[in-house]
């Protein structure tokens, strides 16, 4: 805004001035980058590496009569274990594919149902009514000595 005064720049001062301006500008740019980059990296959490698919215990076979289901903790998410009226065990990620609510098993309808927007899935996890756009992500169920082990499908 205001010129700092002094002697008017002679010709041989121009090169010096340009050099100083470049050096200062580069330095400031580097400083800005040195502040913004660590801050950026700090704020955005690193994607946690998923440790090899681990099986989570969902309880024992006797806990689930046919035509029932329950949510259980699966890593950082909720998962749904159901026992079909025919007695077969199936598991899905409990997150509704519409807007991420937790679904539940409705014994009266023999369906998987989401309370948020009345989305419905059949017992294979397929979206059959309401707004959900995709089937539920299914998980692998293994039964070892009556214990129900659920893991991610590979």
């Amino acid at each position: 805004m205001t010129s700092s005064g002094g002697t008017p720049p002679a010709d041989d001062n121009k090169g010096r001035r340009r050099f100083l301006e470049t050096a200062l500008g580069t330095g400031l740019l580097g400083l800005t980058a040195a502040i913004i980059y660590p801050t950026w990296r700090f704020v955005f959490p690193s994607k946690n590496v998923r440790v090899a698919e681990q099986a989570v215990s969902a309880g024992f076979v006797d806990d689930y009569p046919p035509n029932s289901g329950t949510l259980f903790r699966f890593g950082e998410e909720a998962a749904l274990l159901i026992r079909t009226p025919e007695g077969e065990f199936r598991a899905f990620l409990g997150t509704c594919t519409h807007l991420g609510c937790n679904v539940e098993y409705r014994a009266d309808m023999a369906l998987i149902w989401c309370a948020c927007h009345d989305g419905r899935f059949d017992l294979t996890g397929k979206n059959i009514m309401g707004p959900p756009p995709r089937p539920l992500q299914s998980l692998t169920v293994q039964i070892r000595e009556d214990e129900i082990l659920v893991s991610r499908s590979t």
């Binding site: 660590p38 801050t39 990296r41 700090f42 959490p45 690193s46």
Partner: peptide, 9 residues
């Protein structure tokens, strides 16, 4: 130990 540049901050 885990957060990027967390030690620095």
């Amino acid at each position: 130990s885990e957060v990027p540049f967390g030690w620095l901050v």
